[in-house]
């Protein structure tokens, strides 16, 4: 039996989890900073890092409750080393590294992207590699093939904006609240997506969301004079709803079309959709409709958003890299790879 304490602090969540053999969750604790960001109308990196510092001791202590706070019960520590905000990553890694030194435990740095891919494996006992994972969130739009445990191929990423970022930015164009995913879904609910036609790029090896964002802006700009309020947002709620629905349809179609093509080319019969945008109902419905004969795995919401359990799951397959000599590794805010 291998027991891992995992720590994640790459962005807005301070999180810790104790995971057994990569798949049994003993604890999964998350403290979110979303309210803090809302209060300041945006992210303040210095405050975000300080908020991680303020939360991490309590979050880790809470996660350690199932092992009664006994560090000797653990076999290793895992921590997200990137990508993310540098100040935020530093809090988690330095805390984990100090704990590893103090408790003489080996430590391994994990890619946040690998964590997201492994959230599917963690949430579905029937899912084993090879499987195709679509990682969709505010910071990610990635298609990854997990050939076998610990061996992944990055098939595509975004060439400009992430899909979750597009939801947030289009929500702002339409005067809908942050975060954009839930508010666009709510506005688009029950509304025909065909009042506007937005572009769905089909690129061979990447996603692109910048053009879609610009197309929505053009559509807003083309509304007749008087249809927009002082800050340029459409006045009429039904116009907002139609734009939101058409945007959502195009955003989802690009993802599903891409995955469908790769799945067919590679004869894949297992697909995972992970990350915060996996909570989107239009995406879930489109995936269910398109991949009827395929094993589709979408983890529960608590594993889709940032959490440390997924880092612990990924770490189980990188445990041989855990070291008690290379404790002071650096964070990698720009990390693009899985390993």
């Amino acid at each position: 039996m291998t027991l891992v304490l995992a720590i994640e602090s790459s962005c807005d969540e301070t999180a810790a989890a104790v995971i057994e053999d990569g798949r049994t969750i003993h604890s999964n604790v998350v403290a979110s900073q979303i309210d803090l960001h809302r209060r300041f109308g945006g992210v303040v990196p210095e405050l975000a890092a300080r908020s991680h510092i303020a939360a991490i001791q309590t979050v880790v202590s809470d996660a350690m409750v199932p092992v009664e706070g006994d560090w000797k019960a653990l076999d290793a520590i895992a921590v997200t080393r990137g990508p993310g905000l540098v100040g935020c990553l530093l809090v988690g890694t330095r805390f984990a590294q100090a704990a590893a030194l103090a408790s003489r435990l080996p430590i391994v740095g994990i890619s946040h992207l690998a964590g997201h891919v492994y959230s599917a494996w963690l949430g579905d006992v029937e899912l084993e590699p090879p499987f195709l994972a679509l990682v969709v969130s505010g910071g990610h739009t990635d298609c990854i093939m997990l050939h076998e445990h610990g061996r992944a191929e990055h098939i595509a990423g975004t060439r400009d904006d992430a899909v979750g970022e597009a939801f947030d930015k289009v929500a702002r164009l339409l005067g809908l609240p942050y975060p954009g995913g839930p508010s666009i879904q709510r506005a688009a609910s029950g509304v025909s997506p065909d009042a506007y036609q937005f572009p769905v790029p089909h690129l061979p090896d990447s996603f692109s969301y910048s053009g879609l964002k610009t197309a929505v802006r053009h559509a807003v700009d083309r509304l007749p004079d008087g249809a927009r309020n002082a800050v340029g947002v459409p006045e009429d709620p039904s116009t907002v709803a139609e734009l939101a629905a058409a945007f959502q349809k195009a955003a989802v179609m690009q993802l599903v079309d891409f995955v469908a093509r790769v799945a067919e080319e590679r004869n894949v019969d297992r697909i995972a959709v992970v990350g915060g945008v996996a909570a989107n109902l239009a995406l879930r419905e489109a995936v269910a409709a398109r991949f009827a004969g395929v094993h589709v795995s979408i983890p529960p919401f608590a594993l889709c958003t940032d959490n440390a359990a997924m880092i612990g799951a990924a770490a189980f397959h990188h445990i041989h890299e855990a070291s008690d000599s290379n404790v002071g590794f650096d964070v990698e805010p720009d990390l693009l790879t899985f390993a």
Partner: peptide, 26 residues
């Protein structure tokens, strides 16, 4: 790519490093 989410990207392989910042999320 858009640095909106992580605020800062840096590209180093060329003749001069380029620091790409984005204040949108701030």
């Amino acid at each position: 790519r858009s640095p909106t989410f992580v605020l800062h990207h840096v590209y180093r392989e060329g003749r001069l490093p380029l620091h790409h910042l984005d204040l949108y999320r701030l």
